[in-house]
Design a protein around this nucleic acid. Structure first.
Length: 919
RNA sequence: AGGAAUGUAGCUCAGUUGGUUAGAGCAUCGCCUCGACAAGGCGAGGGUCGUCGGUUCGAAUCCGACCAUUCCUACCA
């Protein structure tokens, strides 16, 4: 058999599965379904996706093999702003602006781009082995889902849960659109606090000083505010000031929102450009003056001098003008949190505009209730708090975007600006009895992408039609996603599903940790520390990796640093690991922690594991290919009973782990079974029988049968986690063992057979392990090579030891490679030896010609010291009357027995040391 | 500012309702080509479980305070 080379077979198997339509739901088992969090259609797979989808795929494959009628619903998201941005940038390279093309042509360009690059992510998912049902793949802008969006919009509007209004929203002046609170990220940045002097209207020689971080907004000030209790300013309340640079006089008001301690204790109020000021403006009936255009340049509400200036140009000039007038008291350095648009990276402006909103409170209440009642369960549970905190203080959701790519808002306006909402223009005219020549124009805006995503679990299943799919697979069983998406998406799906299909969208929410780089840094394009999962699967050279990380950077000056960091982290690039190794890594690191540092060393370790499994299978094939494989009629010996018992124990562990979404524990159980039990012990224990021509053929056949059936079950057990290598190996099994099945992925999952758990077999094997490990310890410590046979004496053993030696002597001879094994009733008159204790029994390896006396004394001293420590710990416990009287009897007895054992061992070791020392 | 999470070996992480000597992988150090596997085998070293207190016969585990890191929410102009 060839070496383990994942690239030789991984893609092949995926193609065969897909061609044979293995990913479609089938059978009449209990339905089990998961909806994929729709990736951005024009995006690429990042490590977080690969991680989540690997977890989901194991759940899906596990359930499918368990006989569930299983659906993993595939689909992608149109990602409005992100996609429009990409295409806009591409056109910019050809010096074309979207406005040059007009709406229709521009949207056409995006569709072209979608057709071209839309399957990148699908191909990546295939490489991951994701057993998604491609047949029913959906896209948020396709006909069916668009129908669902219309239906929901119209019905929420009719119920008064969608409304249009002029509000202050987060405005991206580069993208020229509103964005939701969630798409704004605030970070601390260095700035300044300018203290400006505003002269009093009735006494322009006197000033009130206000502090601001955004001096340019002063052009839109409509009041200044002080705290009602502030003695410095009490007398001024009700007076007015002359707003510099403008011709306006504005009032001084009092409001307890003002913090007396901050700045001068006096704050300028700009209702059109600050959320708090907006609220305050409403409270006091202040004028609202918007001084910005859509691109945040100064508009005609400001003095002519500043018209058309960009907000930051305007700032400089305004400051200079104020300075010239002597109106700047002082400037301080100041850290402030600056809101930036997630997509464009520019500073977001609060901006007054007409927008559409969803009234969320009435939708949130039932959603909160379902989670409280446990109908939806978050795993880990504490993420429910994140959900509750968000939902209990939920703000209305601004759903209109001033973009072209997306679901156009189904609202029409007449000449007077009256709004008509309906599924299409025809319906609007009909319902409102409007003649065909009555002027109507449709709203230019599109809906927030998350609006369509919020319908995802049911719109993908055919809603608003009551399809059989919807009936069968909704609610879905679990949603697997990152914590950053709980408020964006999870909460909104819950609200919408409850509203429109009157059931929860999923029963469980498994919140994964966030995959970071080896330094715990979030992976991102701008930091240049992101990894493409395919580069771990296929490998990539250092040069290619640097190119990949440094092209299309938003900040090109970062390129040099990114290249340096990449060189340091991956001096030799990334080698080829294959999908299975990557996947197994994901399972192993899927613990309950919220950040997961991705460590390439672990991928390497799990690649070795795949290799180990490969080679173990190879061993099995070599030993079963020629001779007869028995029929399983058991004259199983204790060794076979033991490995079957271990296998069943592992099956149990995997089931328990999967029930609790502990992918790490499932992976660990499989890893340990394959490597530590099957490879390290069972295959070794079986060799002397398989390779011995004198052994009874019946026994050899039984061994072969156990060997190959244990392998076959192990492959099935591991398949959800290692889909490719298990399929490749399973296909090499003889048909007699494999059965009629065409693929491992449709075979039944191994299930626990409690009657095969055999504790007594385990005790026997444990004894063998102890004896073998004991002699290996002596060999290892004494540097005696495996090739040198050593004489060994079993002294002072019990009847049980004796009978076990009798039973397993030939095995032990194979494993220990002794010159001979002697049995001795007592330790008297034995030659000076190196000793290892197995319970009461002593393993003796005579020193003569093999072992250095001093080395043995050192080894014994180490052992003795350990025992002395144990003894004092145990004796101390037993010397404590409180322990004796309060601890449970069995714990006390355990300690008593332990003390006896330690004492006996200690005595023997000390005797032994005396004996050696006296030589 | 409020809320949450995390802190265990050099690194990345397990450790279930408190109960043998706190485990694994990687890394380190010896020895070994023995017919599945050097992507391997065997052996060894390595930890005051963030700090301090409390509860308890007994604490990595439960409670409190503090320190450090991280995230979320709200932001003081």
């Amino acid at each position: 058999m060839d070496k383990y080379q994942p690239k030789n077979f991984e893609e092949k198997w995926y193609q065969r599965w897909e061609q044979a339509n293995r990913f479609a739901p089938s059978g009449d088992g209990t339905p089990f379904s998961i909806a994929i969090p729709p990736p951005n259609v024009t995006g690429t797979l990042h490590m977080g996706h690969a991680f989540q989808h690997s977890l989901v795929d194991s759940l899906i494959r596990y359930r499918r093999m368990k006989g569930n009628n299983t659906l993993w619903q595939m689909g992608t998201d149109h990602a409005g702003i992100a996609t429009q941005l990409i295409v806009t940038e591409q056109l910019a390279a050809e010096k074309i602006k979207p406005s040059d093309l007009g709406r229709e042509k521009f949207v056409g360009k995006i569709w072209e781009w979608k057709e071209k690059s839309g399957n990148t992510i699908s191909e990546q998912l295939r490489r991951l082995g994701a057993s998604l049902n491609w047949e029913t793949e959906r896209f948020t802008l396709d006909e069916g889902l668009s129908r669902a969006v219309l239906e929901v919009f119209v019905s929420l509007y009719e119920e008064g849960l969608i409304y249009r209004g002029k509000r202050l929203v987060n405005w991206d002046p580069v993208l020229k659109t509103s964005i939701s609170d969630l798409e704004v990220a605030s970070d601390e940045e260095e700035g300044h606090l300018w203290h400006l002097r505003y002269p009093l209207a009735d006494n322009p020689k006197e000033f009130v000083v206000v502090a601001t971080t955004r001096p340019e907004t002063m052009l839109g000030d409509t009041a200044i505010a002080v705290h009602p209790e502030d003695p410095r300013y009490k007398a001024l309340v009700g007076k007015s000031i002359l707003l510099p640079l403008t011709e306006r006089t504005i009032p001084i008001i009092s409001d307890s929102y003002v913090d007396q301690e901050f700045g001068s204790g006096c704050v300028k109020i700009t209702p059109a450009h600050d959320f708090n000021d907006y609220d305050m403006g409403k409270r006091h009936g202040l004028e609202i003056i918007n001084i910005f255009n859509e691109d945040a340049s100064i508009n005609e509400q400001a003095p002519k001098k500043y018209w058309g200036l960009d907000r930051y140009e305007a700032r400089e000039i305004i400051l200079k003008d104020l300075e010239d007038m002597g109106m700047i008291e002082k400037v301080e350095a100041h850290m402030l949190s600056v809101p930036r648009g997630e997509r464009s990276g520019v500073i977001i402006e609060p901006y007054l505009s007409n927008q559409w909103f969803v009234k969320t409170k009435p939708l949130a209440e039932p959603a909160i209730k379902k989670v409280e009642e446990g109908e939806i369960e978050f795993i880990p549970k504490n993420y429910e708090n994140t959900f509750f905190v968000w939902m209990r203080d939920i703000q209305d959701w601004c759903i209109s975007r001033q973009q072209w790519w997306g679901h156009r808002i189904p609202a029409w306006y007449d000449n007077e600006g009256k709004v008509y909402v309906g599924r299409d223009e025809e319906e609007v005219r009909h319902n409102n009895h409007l003649k065909d020549d009555f002027f109507l124009s449709q709203d230019e805006d599109v809906l927030d992408t998350w609006f369509s995503s919020s319908l995802w679990t049911f719109s993908t299943l055919g809603w608003p039609d009551r399809t059989i799919e919807l009936k069968t697979f909704h609610p879905t069983d679990v949603m697997v996603t990152g914590h950053d998406i709980i408020s964006f998406w999870v909460s909104r799906m819950i609200m919408m599903a409850l509203k429109f299909v009157e059931e929860v969208p999923f029963k469980k929410v498994y919140v994964t940790g966030m995959v970071t780089d080896a330094n715990g840094q979030k992976q991102s394009k701008s930091k240049g520390n992101g990894l493409d999962p395919l580069d771990i699967i296929d490998g990539i050279s250092l040069d290619d990796l640097i190119v990949k990380r440094t092209t299309n950077l938003l900040q090109p000056k970062m390129a040099e640093r990114i290249a340096q960091n990449t060189k340091r982290e991956f001096p030799n690039g990334i080698q080829t690991y294959g999908t299975d190794a990557l996947r197994f890594t994901f399972y192993s690191i899927a613990t309950r922690s919220r950040t997961i540092r991705f460590d390439m060393n672990r991928v390497e370790g799990y690649q070795h594991f795949c290799n180990k499994l490969w080679n173990a299978a190879n061993f099995v094939f070599i030993n079963t290919i020629e001779g007869e494989i028995g029929n399983g009629v058991s004259n199983n010996d204790v060794i076979d009973k033991w490995i079957v018992s271990e296998l069943n124990h592992t099956i149990q562990l995997v089931d328990q782990a999967m029930d609790r979404y502990r992918f790490d524990l499932a992976a660990k159980a499989i890893y340990e079974f394959v490597w530590d039990e099957l490879c390290d012990w069972y295959l070794e224990l079986v060799k002397p029988i398989l390779n011995n021509p004198e052994i009874d053929n019946q026994l050899v056949q039984t061994k072969r049968f156990t060997l190959i059936t244990v392998l076959e079950q192990t492959l099935r057990l591991a398949h959800p986690f290692l889909p490719f290598v298990t399929e490749e190996l399973w296909q090499k099994l003889p048909g007699k063992i494999r059965g009629e099945g065409k693929t491992i992925m449709s075979q039944p999952y191994p299930s626990l057979n409690q009657t095969l758990i055999d504790p007594s077999a385990k005790l026997d094997i444990t004894w063998i392990k102890e004896v073998v490990t004991g002699t290996r310890n002596i060999r290892g410590e004494m540097d005696i090579p495996h090739s040198t046979p050593i004489p060994i004496i079993f002294a002072n053993g019990s009847d049980m030891d004796k009978s076990r030696l009798y039973e397993f002597q030939s095995l032990l001879e194979y494993l220990i490679k002794p010159k001979e094994i002697q049995w001795s009733e007592s330790t008297d008159k034995q030659p000076p030896s190196s000793t290892h204790l197995v319970g009461e029994m002593q393993l003796l390896v005579p020193l003569k010609g093999l072992i250095n006396k001093e080395l043995e004394i050192i080894r014994l001293d180490k052992e003795i010291e350990r025992k002395i420590n144990d003894k004092s710990r145990t004796a101390k416990k037993l010397g404590n009357n409180n322990f004796i009287s309060k601890a449970p009897l069995e714990v006390v007895n355990k300690e008593r027995e332990k003390l006896i054992e330690i004492d006996s061992a200690l005595t023997k070791l000390k005797e032994q040391r005396l004996k050696i020392a006296s030589l």
